[in-house]
Write a protein that binds this DNA or RNA. Structure first.
Lengths: 335, 335
DNA sequence: ATGAAAGCGCTAACAT
DNA sequence: ATGTTAGCGCTTTCAT
């Protein structure tokens, strides 16, 4: 079989006996009004159709300096929250004509670095990313290249850059107060230990509110390492079950921690809500199958993803004022 | 601020007083052995480092005709199954040095078509996709361009192309037989109605086994339209609850159907497993919070993703024998 | 061992 | 209204 080169703009120019430039103009939709005669326009389009011409976006990108692609870096796309976030980013990007390259960091600094390098080399027009603990320097590589960026879910405190996050502290405090006002006294917090503000704020929101009501018991604040979470959560539940005082409620800082934790609660024969109540930061689409009362915090994921894209596209188009959005979350109850 | 052009291979060639070609050779790692002197090699690398050179992959792609990018088309990346699948595809692709562009079809033919066109125009080196009902012609656009492709999760029966799927029929039959052997008689099946083999096989596996044991009751085979699934599943559960005969078990054809369905079972005060048993095609990572007995079918998602990438990369490298893998699944029990 | 130059497919500025 | 041409940044063949 012959090695068939793809049909290019030149081929159709040759066939019609016109120049590349003309063909390019009509095919890229810039033949508006005066430029090219309607007749020529039609001929070109027909020929393109007939020869089954497909533009080579790579060549176009090299020429224009725009790839119409944005990079997205999340922790782990198989995680429900990030999967949802990425989905909405993609759908919104599609509206603007952008394609998305997604990569995962698994909360690892080297992977974050690789992701940034790859995306930059691929000449993406902008990057939306979930900051990794201690990775500000890596993020700065992006700004040094003057590529627009938006942080989501978290942000580096001393990094003057766009972000879209939620009121982690406020809602965590609110959730805690809700528990307290229900008359619960011994409230535990199980949260990842890494130093990204989304998490530290969640923990701190609980702690501050507990302290305010003189209910803080440091023994009930459990820090979990991401890498050994399964084991550490198991241990934490075990500890709480055997704590000198009877525990009234557990606040789980994220979906994954919640699922693992609740699973171990059942294994330890802790009944929900009779023995302990539970609160989960994040909505889980399978709450329905749990059939227990759950207090949870719902983030406006769709809005966050859309806003991140909106900001990014604005900046790609030239704006350069930094935008920092803090979305409100909702405290929800399943009874 | 000056508009700083990025440093190119030319810049570093100029600085060193050598030619572009030489620089290109060492920077793309092709200076092996004889070609370039070690001394030159070192000088180039140092200069590149010092000037903070970053290769422009777009230019490289235009030149080589390879983008080192693969396209992935799934139904919906926010779906747990596809999120997981995509994650493993990405991780495996990373090992081979490939980047991944992901797109969602939402089971819609037009979106599928757009995705294919976009990926093709972006000159991806290969495409892994989840076939959409009735989309074979669109898939053929890929082969017409001689771009390697791998179907996952499903495949078009008359399309001579690679695929990686599971034994949907066999395991569904097996699950059904398991229920029957437990003494259950009235077994319902709730499944999407669209015509992709993964689903039709699941349904048929149940039906055939029920018929074999003379237990088939057509009134218990419920087809659900993807678009109105919430409403239709609700209705199906309602119907089953009020069926003349008492229903013993429900087989749910996918994760989403299961979650929605079980939720409505609770709302209808159907107890699991006392009133009815449930089986779910797919493992859900939050089964733990349900705390009920569940029979489920676990697919080797990681292996499927990895195998899909392996096949694709092989074909990108030149192989052209079609590979069709059917992975075994496992019937699992949570008690 | 290194330089020179063509070419990848397209855009865009400048001519005509 | 259309043609011409010079890039975009890199790879790669062919000279030297």
């Amino acid at each position: 079989m012959k090695k068939k080169r793809k049909v290019s703009i030149q081929d159709i120019a040759d066939k019609l006996g016109v120049s590349k430039g003309t063909v390019s103009l009509v095919l890229s939709g810039k033949a508006k009004g005066s430029r090219v005669s309607d007749e020529m326009c039609k001929k070109v389009k027909e020929a393109a159709e007939e020869m089954n011409y497909q533009p080579n976006e790579i060549a176009r990108s090299l020429s224009t300096g725009k790839t119409m692609t944005i990079g997205v870096i999340v922790t782990d796309i198989s995680n429900e929250f990030f999967g949802n976030l990425t989905f909405h980013i993609q759908e919104q990007a599609k509206k603007y004509g952008y394609t998305v390259i997604t990569t995962n960091t698994n909360e690892d600094l080297d992977e974050f670095n690789d992701a940034v390098t790859t995306l930059l080399n691929k000449q993406v027009d902008g990057i939306i990313f979930v900051p990794v603990d201690n990775g500000q320097q890596i993020a700065e590589k992006i700004t040094k290249r003057h590529i627009p960026l938006v942080q989501v879910d978290r942000f580096y405190p001393n990094f003057k850059a766009n972000y879209v996050v939620v009121d982690n502290y406020k809602v965590s405090a609110k959730a805690t107060e809700h528990l307290i006002k229900k008359g619960l006294k011994k409230i535990a917090v199980i949260c990842y230990d890494f130093d990204v503000n989304a998490l530290t704020e969640r923990r701190q929101g609980c702690i501050d509110m507990l302290r305010q009501y003189k209910l803080l018991d440091p023994g009930l604040i459990k820090d979990i390492r991401y890498q050994d979470q399964e084991e550490e959560i198991k241990q934490a539940i075990h500890d709480l079950k055997n704590y000198p005082d009877k525990i009234d409620a557990i606040y789980f800082c994220s979906r994954k921690v919640f699922i693992t934790g609740v699973g171990y609660m059942y294994k330890n024969e802790i009944r929900i809500p009779e023995d302990m109540e539970v609160v989960c930061f994040d909505k889980i689409d399978s709450f329905a199958i749990a059939n227990i009362p759950i207090i949870y915090i719902e983030q406006p994921i769709k809005k966050m993803g859309e806003k991140a894209v909106d900001i990014l596209v604005e900046q790609i188009k030239g704006s350069d004022d930094v935008k920092q959005y803090v979305f409100d979350t909702k405290l929800m109850y399943i009874n």
